[in-house]
Structures are given as C-alpha cells and as structure tokens.
Simulated scan of single mutants.
Amino acid sequence: MKRLFGSMCCLAASTAFAQDDVKQPQLIKKSTFHASVTLGYGGIENPVLDADDVISPILPSLAYYGDSWYFDDFSIGYSLFESEKFYIDLLGRFNDDGFFFELDGVDKLFATGVVRSSSGRPTIPSASPINLTPIERNLSYMAGFSSALNIYDDIWLSAAYVHDITNVHNGYEILFNGYQAFTLFSGIAGIEAGINYKNEELIDYYYTVSPTESKTRLLSYNLESATNYYLKVSYEYPISDNFSVDFKLKHTWLDSNLANSHMINKNGYFSGFTGITYHF
C-alpha cells in the first residue's frame, strides 16, 4: 500500500497539468473540487543507480481552490495576496528527491551496486564479516513562500522558496519557472521551463554514501549544492464533457556535480503520463 500510495503521489506531483510548485488561477474555477483519473501508461525514471523506475497504469488527481486556501494533489497553500496578475502564497509540498528512495524500497539497494570498484582487488578482507547498513532516506515535506506574475495573456513567471519542516535534512530549495498555456488543434497545450536550486544540506543527505553503506572503499567526492533544470510539455484534447485525451512529458537535467556522484548513474531523467482522463 505504501508503494502504491507513493507512486500515485510522485506521479501526480511530477506530471500534473498545472505547475508543480505554484497554482494556476487562470485554469481552475474557485470554490469547486476538481477530481479526475487517467488510465494509460506513465511513470518516472529513477536516476539512483540500480533503483527501480516507477511505472503505473493510473494517475489520479484532486484539487480544490477556495478564496484563501487550496490543495492541488499533494501541494497545499494559503493566499496572502492575490490579484488577476500577481499573487503571493504560503506553500507546502513534498521534496521529490525522497521519492527516489521511498518508491524503490531501497532496503535492497546497497552501495555494492551504487559504487563500483575501479580496481580488481577487494578493499575488505574476504574473511571479515560484512554488515552493511541499507541505504534508506526519508521523504521530507517542504514549506515556504511562492509568488507568480502574469506577464502576458497566459504566460506566467513564478518563484518559490521552501524549507524542510520535517527535520529530515533541514535543507531548502529555490525554484523559478515560466509557464504558458495556449489552444492547439481544439485542445489545450502547455509548456513549462524551470530551474530548481537545492542547497548542500539537502543534497548531502540524499546522495552521500556513508562508509557503512558501502562494500568498497569510496573515492573522495564532495557533494555541493545542485541546480537542476527541467522542461515540461502537456496537451489535453477534450472528447466530451467528462472525457479527454491527455499527454504529459517532463525531462529534468541534473546538476553535473550531482550526476557524477556515487549515487547517480545518469545526467537526467524523464517523467510523464499519457492516457484517457475521466473528469468527475
């Protein structure tokens, strides 16, 4: 159940039509619940070495925007100031790095798979008992402020600062993105580009391999703060009042220092979902 819940949470947070970290007031009518479920195919690549990708045939979504507060899947917020062109919110959201570990059940992921020995000789005598600590990282919840500015028609620029409030790593993130929605072939298309800065405390907690987690001697490698970039495209084509065809695809480019660390095996990862959506 935890794995299924986590999969839905992670997919919804990463592939929702609205922006990941800020609300889209021009797309959602206030004081009404918006619920939908998409049947199709999608998931998230897991950039952690030897960890499983997350694949699912279903993607649920639930949102509500009131006069002052809102939730959009697993993000929650409270409006401090709002006009048609600008708003400032209190914001809460999950940290996405934690999902890479929670979803895989990484009690099976040891640094024997994470860290490959570059030499042919063992670094620990074979007669010695090997008691490795499983690589486990906790999911954290972040809270802070977000704001957005409508610069032209359906083009929005946004920024957010969120800090760990669950005492997992006590790190923070700073996010900037731009979003535009437009009509295309009788449907609604969206394109979003963003930058996500993660400070050193956050990166160090999730991606540092400790000596007790590794069977091989780790080469010296200092993790620093990381700046990731992403591009997301989406398209929704209405079939009827309750059904639509949906496509969402996002690619995240990892910071080069993070991509070359002991825990990561790729420079970026994809997430997305496509299928038929029923709107309740």
Rank of each mutant, 00 (worst) to 15 (best):
S186L: 03
F99M: 06
P129C: 09
R121E: 12
D241M: 13
Y278W: 08
K266E: 15
L49A: 13
T216S: 07
K248F: 06
F101W: 10
G43V: 03
S117H: 09
T15N: 13
Y65W: 13
N95R: 04
V114T: 08
N267G: 15
A127P: 03
Y161D: 05
E201N: 12
E84F: 05
T274E: 00
E213H: 09
W156I: 00
F243S: 02
D20G: 04
A160W: 02
D255V: 05
A181T: 15
F182R: 05
F86R: 07
E82W: 02
E213L: 10
R137G: 06
D73Q: 11
S56E: 05
E173V: 12
D241R: 15
G268L: 10
E102S: 10
N131I: 13
S119K: 10
F17P: 03
K30W: 00
L39W: 13
N95P: 00
N265P: 00
G98V: 11
P47T: 06
D20N: 05
Y269M: 07
H262S: 09
A259Q: 02
G105N: 12
H163F: 11
E236L: 08
K250R: 15
G66H: 10
M1T: 15
G113I: 11
Q19W: 01
V162K: 04
I264Q: 00
K108F: 11
L231M: 12
A111E: 12
Y230S: 08
I195W: 00
F33R: 02
D97F: 10
V48I: 12
S14G: 13
L184M: 14
K248E: 11
L27N: 04
D164F: 03
T38M: 01
S220L: 08
V54K: 01
H279N: 11
Y41Q: 06
R3I: 13
G105S: 08
N199V: 11
R137T: 02
S146K: 03
P25G: 04
A35H: 06
E201G: 00
I276F: 04
K198D: 08
S31L: 09
A127M: 08
F182G: 04
A148Q: 05
N138R: 14
D72V: 06
G190C: 07
S61N: 14
H262Y: 09
T216C: 01
G190S: 14
S210N: 12
N199A: 07
L80D: 03
L149C: 11
M263Q: 08
G187S: 10
I203F: 02
E45K: 08
F247A: 14
L219G: 13
S147F: 06
F247E: 04
D154I: 00
F99V: 09
G42Y: 01
L249F: 04
S56L: 10
S31Q: 11
C10Y: 10
T133Q: 12
D153H: 14
I44H: 01
Y64G: 08
T212G: 10
F81L: 15
A189G: 12
